[in-house]
């Protein structure tokens, strides 16, 4: 189960200009670099070190993450939706990989 699967939750509806609650969860071990394996060797650090959310190209939140963020990182925050459009969520892994999720959102 090494597949990284981002999960996003947005409210069902909102009016133009509303602030909505956005929740995100992504499966990741967030290996701190402090732990040792059974052979006593340090397990190298591998975390998601940055997370961003944009709506229609406008930055909502930009998070610099440290190893003390729990495994399977969870983020909940508020975003303004002035019009219908697309959310883009991006997670940056220490190993250089970038995970992206997009979610369309319609305002009424």
């Amino acid at each position: 189960m090494t597949d990284v699967r981002p999960r996003i939750r947005l409210p069902r509806s909102a009016s133009a200009g509303d602030s909505i609650t956005v929740k995100t969860l992504i499966n990741h071990d967030m290996e701190t670099g402090q732990r040792r394996n059974s052979a006593g060797e340090t397990i190298p650090r591998q975390i998601i070190n940055r997370f961003t959310c944009e709506f229609n190209g406008v930055m909502v939140i930009d998070v610099a993450m440290e190893p003390a963020i729990s495994a399977n990182p969870y983020m909940e925050f508020e975003a303004v939706v002035p019009e219908s459009g697309e959310f883009v969520f991006t997670w940056y892994d220490d190993n250089g990989e970038v995970y992206t999720a997009t979610e369309a959102f319609e305002v009424s």
Binding site: R5, R7, R9, K23, L25, N27, Y74
Partner: peptide, 8 residues
């Protein structure tokens, strides 16, 4: 959504 077991 908040239950991390749902990933599994």
């Amino acid at each position: 959504f908040e239950n991390p077991a749902m990933i599994a």
